[in-house]
């Protein structure tokens, strides 16, 4: 555990590019072989019967049900929202998902479809998703647009080019700026707290676990509410070892700073077995404080139907065919 960082120390770290670099490069390294072995070992946990039922419902409640295609239509988004509110129309006991995740221009549609005051959030990608290759002014405008349309959460991408080139200050400043753009204009919406900011690291482009750990800390220092693995547009997307390293980062960050940050693996999580492995990872790395939709999300789409299928199998003892679960 890093020794506690007080506000003075914190503002010192973030005061200049040089001190940011010193801090990030002073974080303990990640041994690739060891991290992958740990993730692989945890993937052998056998989750059965009551534990499986619990995990399936928890996983459903953590899903950010996502559609991020150029061909998305308002109709598709409305369908997604209906599914989010009632994942299995034949079974009211199925929990709702955490959020729907769409492009900024479809936020208003999603908001309307979910209805005012819905406990299913609307998340919007922004900041020139998925590449992030726009000017800061455009990123800020993109974010303000989404928030003005009612987004409860903003999933931003970091400038991987700047990060990999070592321009940590630039990445930090951008996250801070986008966080500010997440603030709601007065009176525009309910809570005044602004949209929650999820920072997508795009770990598939960061190449090393050391970079994942540094990017995680950088995002958290800049004010991220969540750190998220991937856009889903780059292979590899979320992996267990990457998520392990990020969970260690949020755990250590809370120990040092006292602020809890959420984690969201996204992309490539398709089966219940995959989802349960992530929950095991959370349980045995960051701990049960993170086993909550407020602190852990799964960015996915096809995963939901597999979870529903397994859920029904647990209750009835039989598998139903795919046509018994609705398309979204």
């Amino acid at each position: 555990m890093l020794s506690a960082l007080d506000d003075a120390r914190l503002s010192d770290i973030t005061s200049s590019e040089a001190s940011l670099r010193r801090f990030l490069h002073g974080l303990p390294g990640v041994d690739q072989v060891g991290a992958e072995a740990r993730a692989a070992m945890l993937a052998t946990r056998s989750i059965k019967t009551t534990a499986k039922q619990f995990a399936i419902d928890l996983a459903i409640s953590m899903i950010d049900l996502t559609t991020l295609e150029g061909q998305d239509t308002p109709g598709k988004v409305r369908a997604l929202c209906a599914k989010a509110l009632r994942p299995d129309p034949s079974d009211r006991s199925v929990p709702r998902v955490a959020a729907v995740c769409v492009y900024p221009d479809l936020v208003a549609t999603a908001k309307e479809a979910l209805g005012a005051g819905s406990d299913v959030k609307v998340a919007s990608v922004a900041t020139g998703f998925p590449s992030g290759r726009t000017s800061l002014a455009v990123k800020e405008a993109d974010t303000r647009d989404a928030v003005a349309a009612g987004a409860d959460e903003v999933d931003m991408v970091i400038d991987r080019g700047a990060f990999l080139a070592g321009r940590y200050g630039q990445v930090f400043d951008e996250i801070v700026a986008v966080k500010q753009a997440c603030a709601r204009a007065h009176g525009a919406n309910d809570d005044g707290a602004g949209a929650h900011l999820k920072v997508i690291l795009e770990t598939g482009e960061l190449a090393t676990y050391d970079n994942v750990r540094r990017a995680s800390w950088l995002a958290m220092l800049a004010g991220a509410d969540f750190i998220k693995t991937s856009t889903g547009k780059v292979v590899p997307a979320a992996t267990l070892p990457v998520t392990l390293v990020m969970l260690e980062a949020v755990r250590d960050f809370r120990d040092a700073i006292g602020r809890q940050v959420g984690v969201k693996p996204a992309g490539g999580i398709r089966t219940s077995k995959d989802a349960i492995r992530y929950l095991v990872l959370v349980n045995e790395t960051a701990g049960e404080d993170w086993l909550d939709p407020d602190w852990f999300r799964l960015g996915a789409s096809s995963l939901l139907n597999d979870l529903l299928m397994q859920r029904q199998k647990m209750l009835t003892g039989r598998y139903a065919g795919p046509d018994y679960f609705t398309l979204d």
């Binding site: 056998s46 059965k48 009551t50 534990a51 928890l58 929950l279 349980n283």
Partner: peptide
């Protein structure tokens, strides 16, 4: 169950 407790998996 309110916590993620692993059921026996013998």
């Amino acid at each position: 169950m309110t916590k993620f407790e692993y059921a026996p998996a013998p």
